[in-house]
Computed example of a mutant assay.
Amino acid sequence: MKISFAQAFKNLFTSRKIDEEFFENLTDALVEGDMGAKLAYEICDQLEKICREKKISDESEIKNELKKLLSSMVRACEFTPEKGKVNIYMMLGVNGVGKTTSAAKIARLYKERGERVIMAASDTFRAAAEEQLEMHGERLGIRVISHQHGSDPSAVVFDAAESCRANGGGLIIADTAGRLHNKENLVRELQKIDRIAAQKADKGCFKKILVIDGTTGQNALRQAEVFSESVGVDAIVITKYDSTARGGCVFTIGKELSLPVLFVCTGEKYEDIRPFEPEKYIEEFIGN
């Protein structure tokens, strides 16, 4: 089993002086921590230069300089639905990242904040997705709008938006398909949902949220690129994350695509979701 970056970073200081080899090993540790090689080299080059110029060799000082470099690559964001309007948050992501569960967690979170929430089962080709969302809706007391298996996914969003408007506005969390192995069909499907959602939501009330598995490493960047190119992405949600996860993909996505992070999911329960806090995330990534 791979160790976390925090542990690998700590190990670098055990019996090693701060020389060229130290920074080479740090680069390797960052790559092992799921950061892209290009960015890992870039960060280590900058860090080595800073340490040389400031004559830094102390572990805590090196750690602080690394934190500063990483903090420029990630940022948090917050979405607040507008009262009395139709707000649509479209959930994106490949199958297996925890998208449907994340949709339920986010729906519960906003319901607890006093929002009127509807979930739209727009992944109509994977029967389990509709059933799963309906199960979540039942448990959470949140209405789920779904159509029969294989029907037009954008029609589900259309109906959810009509219902939402008729009831004085609210928030629609729309789950979508994520079959990347059939990319062309998926892209067309998502673009159609995107058009309908953009038409039906009130101005400025449509957001696209990409769900990324915190343990998938560099695949996460590729996924973010695919969805950004296809329909655009406003923010990401990290799933399957805990303090032992490697999590470096967040920095690569932040640096390459400038995407902010909305939430971090830390477990299976509905309440295992929290707003993204860059400082806390970096602290956990590097270690105390």
Rank of each mutant, 00 (worst) to 15 (best):
S4N: 10
F5A: 10
N11W: 00
N11P: 01
F13L: 11
T14P: 00
T14F: 13
S15C: 00
S15F: 01
F23P: 03
L26N: 14
D28T: 10
D34W: 08
M35A: 10
L39N: 07
L47P: 06
E48S: 13
I50L: 09
E53S: 09
E53Q: 12
I56V: 14
S57G: 13
E59G: 07
K63E: 14
L69R: 04
M73K: 14
F79D: 15
N87I: 14
N87H: 12
I88Q: 10
M90K: 03
M91P: 00
E112A: 08
G114E: 14
E115H: 07
M119L: 14
A121T: 06
T124C: 08
T124S: 08
R126A: 12
A128Y: 01
Q132I: 06
M135C: 02
E138P: 00
L140K: 09
G141C: 07
G150C: 11
A155Q: 08
D159E: 13
R165T: 02
I172L: 13
A177I: 11
R179S: 13
I196T: 10
A197Q: 08
Q199A: 12
D202F: 05
C205Y: 07
V211T: 03
G214A: 15
G217W: 12
Q218L: 12
A220D: 15
A220G: 12
L221C: 05
L221V: 13
R222Q: 11
F227L: 00
E229G: 01
V233F: 00
D234I: 02
K240T: 04
T244M: 02
T244A: 07
G247Y: 09
C249W: 07
G254P: 07
E256G: 01
L259H: 01
F263G: 05
P275E: 15
P278D: 13
K280N: 09
I282H: 06
E284W: 02
